[in-house]
Structure formats: C-alpha cells, structure tokens
Amino acid sequence: GSPLAQQIKNIHSFIHQAKAAGRMDEVRTLQENLHQLMHEYFQQ
C-alpha cells in the first residue's frame, strides 16, 4: 500500500497501545494525527 496507508495503520496501533496504557492525552494527540492523515489520504 501507499506510505500514507501504512502510516494510518501504524497510528491505529499506537492509539490501541496508548489506550491500553491509559495515556488518554496521547490518545487524543494520535487521533488528531489520524484525522489529518485520513484527510490527506482521501485528497489523493
């Protein structure tokens, strides 16, 4: 897949890990990143 698709997959797993660790501030930051990446992805 594209590097962007790979990045989106990575962030999904980072979010999963951050949630499991209870780091909600990190989850929020990652979700904002994910949102931006998704936006770029669909602009392609």
Score class of each variant (00 low, 15 high):
1 G>A: 11
1 G>K: 11
1 G>T: 12
1 G>P: 11
2 S>R: 06
2 S>L: 13
2 S>C: 15
2 S>D: 10
2 S>N: 11
3 P>W: 15
3 P>A: 14
3 P>M: 14
3 P>F: 14
3 P>L: 14
3 P>D: 14
3 P>T: 15
3 P>H: 12
3 P>E: 13
3 P>V: 12
4 L>G: 02
4 L>A: 03
4 L>T: 03
4 L>E: 02
4 L>P: 02
4 L>I: 09
4 L>M: 05
5 A>H: 09
5 A>K: 09
5 A>W: 15
5 A>E: 11
6 Q>K: 07
6 Q>F: 07
7 Q>C: 08
7 Q>M: 12
7 Q>T: 06
7 Q>F: 08
7 Q>H: 05
7 Q>L: 13
7 Q>Y: 07
7 Q>K: 10
7 Q>E: 07
8 I>W: 04
8 I>Q: 00
8 I>T: 01
9 K>T: 05
9 K>W: 09
9 K>H: 07
9 K>N: 05
9 K>S: 06
10 N>W: 14
10 N>R: 14
10 N>M: 15
10 N>I: 14
10 N>E: 13
10 N>A: 14
10 N>S: 10
11 I>V: 07
11 I>T: 03
11 I>N: 01
12 H>K: 14
12 H>W: 15
12 H>M: 15
12 H>A: 08
13 S>D: 09
13 S>R: 15
14 F>N: 07
14 F>A: 15
14 F>H: 08
14 F>L: 15
15 I>H: 00
15 I>T: 01
15 I>S: 00
15 I>Q: 00
15 I>N: 00
15 I>R: 00
16 H>W: 13
16 H>T: 11
17 Q>A: 13
17 Q>M: 11
17 Q>Y: 07
17 Q>H: 06
18 A>L: 08
18 A>E: 02
18 A>N: 02
19 K>Y: 13
19 K>I: 13
19 K>F: 13
19 K>G: 02
19 K>H: 08
20 A>E: 09
20 A>N: 06
20 A>Y: 04
20 A>W: 07
20 A>M: 12
20 A>L: 12
20 A>C: 14
20 A>V: 09
22 G>M: 04
22 G>R: 04
22 G>P: 00
22 G>V: 02
22 G>A: 03
23 R>Q: 05
23 R>T: 02
23 R>Y: 04
23 R>M: 07
23 R>E: 03
24 M>E: 07
24 M>L: 11
24 M>H: 09
24 M>T: 06
24 M>D: 06
24 M>G: 04
24 M>Y: 12
25 D>P: 02
25 D>L: 06
25 D>K: 06
25 D>Y: 05
26 E>L: 15
27 V>Q: 01
27 V>L: 06
27 V>P: 00
27 V>W: 04
27 V>C: 03
27 V>A: 05
28 R>L: 08
28 R>N: 04
28 R>E: 05
29 T>V: 12
29 T>E: 10
29 T>R: 15
29 T>M: 13
30 L>N: 01
30 L>P: 00
30 L>V: 01
30 L>S: 01
30 L>H: 03
30 L>E: 01
30 L>F: 04
30 L>I: 01
31 Q>D: 03
31 Q>V: 11
31 Q>T: 12
31 Q>F: 12
32 E>G: 06
32 E>L: 12
32 E>T: 08
32 E>I: 12
32 E>F: 13
33 N>Q: 15
33 N>S: 13
33 N>I: 15
33 N>D: 08
34 L>R: 01
34 L>T: 00
34 L>W: 02
34 L>K: 00
34 L>Q: 01
34 L>M: 04
35 H>M: 12
35 H>L: 12
35 H>G: 04
35 H>T: 09
35 H>F: 10
35 H>V: 11
35 H>D: 08
36 Q>E: 07
36 Q>N: 08
37 L>C: 04
37 L>I: 05
37 L>N: 00
37 L>Y: 02
37 L>F: 03
38 M>F: 07
38 M>P: 00
38 M>I: 11
38 M>E: 03
39 H>I: 13
39 H>W: 12
39 H>N: 09
39 H>E: 09
40 E>Y: 10
40 E>P: 02
40 E>D: 07
40 E>T: 08
40 E>C: 15
40 E>K: 12
40 E>G: 04
42 F>T: 06
42 F>Q: 07
42 F>I: 08
42 F>A: 09
42 F>V: 06
42 F>H: 08
42 F>P: 02
42 F>G: 05
43 Q>H: 10
43 Q>E: 08
43 Q>Y: 07
43 Q>D: 06
43 Q>C: 15
44 Q>Y: 13
44 Q>N: 09
44 Q>S: 10
44 Q>T: 11
44 Q>D: 07
44 Q>K: 11
44 Q>I: 11
